[in-house]
Amino acid sequence: MEETVGLFDIFHTIKKRWNVIVLLTLIAVLISASVSYYILKPVYQASTQILVNQKNTENKIDYTQLQSNVDLINTYRVILKSPVILEKAIDKLNLTQSWEELNQHIQVTSQENSQVFSLMVEDQDASKAVVIANTVSETFQEEIKGIMNVDNVSIIAKAELKQNPIPVKPKPILNMAIAFVIGVMIGIGTALLLDFMDNTFKDEHDVEACLGLPVLGTVQKMPKVHEKGKRDSKTQTMGSEKVVSSVEK
C-alpha cells in the first residue's frame, strides 16, 4: 500500500518541528548579519556624469549631430574602460593595481537616447573612489580628442566626497532578508526530511500496521500538574531514598 503525504501532513510536520525551522532560520540570519557587518568590508561608490555633445556655434539644434552623439556613447563606454585610459589614470594616481583590476571596479551606464553617461567607481575607501572617478573621467576627456579627433566630451558632474558616505555594499538588511527566506526553506526541508527519516511509532495505526498487535490503549502526555510530583512534610529521608513511617497492620 502506497503512503501518500497530504498538505495536512506537511503542516503537521511544520507545526511539530517548528523549533528546527526557527533555529535554522535564526542561524541563517545570524550568519548573514555577522558576515555583512563584521566580515565583508564596506564598499563605497563615487560617480561622475559625462556629456557627449559637439560644441555648436550656431543656436539651432542639429538632430543628425544629436543622434550621432548618442550613437557614439556605446563606443565611448568601451574606450573609457580600455587600457589606453585606465593605464594613464593609474600612472597619474600611482596605483599599484593593474588596469584589469581597476576595470572590475568601474561601471559605465547610460540611459537610452541620452547624451549623458555615468562613470561609477567602487572602492573600500570612499575618498579613493572619488579620486579615481574624477581622474578617469578627466583622463578620458583629455585622451578622447586624440583618439576620435573630436572635442565633444565634457564633465557635467564631478564625484564629491560626502561627509558621511554610505556604503553601497554590503546591504545587511537585504542579505538578512534573503538569509531569512533561505533559512525558512532549509528549515522546512530539514523538518520534512527528519519526519521522513523518523522510523518511530506516532499513533495506533503505526503500531497495528507494523507490529500486527492490538492496541490496548493510548496514554497521552502527562500534564504539568502531574509531572511536578507531590511532596509532603511527613516524608522522611532514609539513606538516599524517601520513605514514610510504616504502620504495622
Partner: peptide, 28 residues
C-alpha cells in the same frame, strides 16, 4: 502481615507516576 504505606507521602517521583491514585477523574 503487610505494612501500610501512604501514597501521598512518597517520593517526588510518585506524584507523576500514580496519576490514577492521585487524580482518578483525570483523562489519563
Amino acid at each position: 502481615m503487610a505494612r501500610k504505606r501512604n501514597i501521598k507521602q512518597t517520593s517526588t517521583n510518585s506524584g507523576r507516576k500514580l496519576v490514577t491514585a492521585i487524580d482518578p477523574k483525570s483523562p489519563i
